[in-house]
Amino acid sequence: MRLFLILATLVTVLFAVSLTIGPAETGGLQSLAALLTGSDGPLPMVMREIRLPRALLAALIGGGLGMAGAALQGYLRNPLAEPGLIGVSGSAAFGAVLALQAGLTATATLGLPLAALLGAVVGVFLVMGLAGARGGSLTLILAGIAISALAGALTSLVLNLSPNPFAANDIVFWMMGSLADRSMTHLWLALPFIVIGAGLLASTARGLDALTLGEDAAETLGLSLSRLRLLVVLGTAAIVGGATAVAGSIGFVGLVVPHILRPFVGAQPSRLLWASALGGAALLLMADISVRVILPDRDLKLGVVTALIGAPLFLHLIFKTRRELP
């Protein structure tokens, strides 16, 4: 409970800070007042149409990715599992890019997140099929690298073939992710997918706890492993699909957050799920604040910051895993 309060306070504070940061240098309190009560002039529009969706998306996507990381790690019982690292985000980005360039998004409003979801589902199944549900860390990471590389190459290919001269520059966005100039439209696209995905993952909480006893013990407790697997796959794919469709692939959130919070929840997967959701929201809000503080005039990609935090931790985890191997 105390952890919950601390994390919730952190998210609230970061959310408020995120709302007050922007190139139009307006006073913090004045900005928040314009957001809540303003009616005339440009400032309420800036707050409601530009800064609010950005802050909301950071919290939503960060929360979703944190939770997806916790669920994947719980299900695979592998601390290296993370949607970005195992190629799910990359596959989702490929799905989204295909839908955008094929013009599918103009005919069907939900075409963009649905295509990203489909890409993510294919990615998860591929990686689990390649590594095997009980595969070791090494096979999982290798399969993830292969799928990431393939999805990245296909994404770049499609963008280079686009008739739009700006499309090739979008490669960076799809690989590293950004929340710059996102709008409420994007929030409404991502929200249902992330909420449904979070619901699916929340329903796996007891199953993941049971799984810590080992698969045989879990099955004697009446746990259906195939059902659990389906829930984790679909929940992760829905979250990653919704998030990637509007913000590109943002890596390492699902790796860092569960790792930091695991000791505080007694390594219990069910508690780690919601703690990681809050922690992920805080981390992504922090990352999005720092990209705007470090380089206010340029669109520094979110994935740069999350990778700078996450990659050293990833190296540390690899080192630890290597020591545990015979």
């Binding site: 360039q101 686009s162 008739p163 739009n164 001269p165 700006f166 520059n169 966005f173 409420m184």
Partner: peptide, 20 residues
């Protein structure tokens, strides 16, 4: 805007710009 999609041009259909 050009044919096909680019995130660079997304900004031209941003609701804030449309409202403006």
């Amino acid at each position: 805007a050009y044919d096909g999609h680019s995130r660079a041009e997304d900004i031209l259909t941003h609701p804030a710009l449309r409202a403006l």
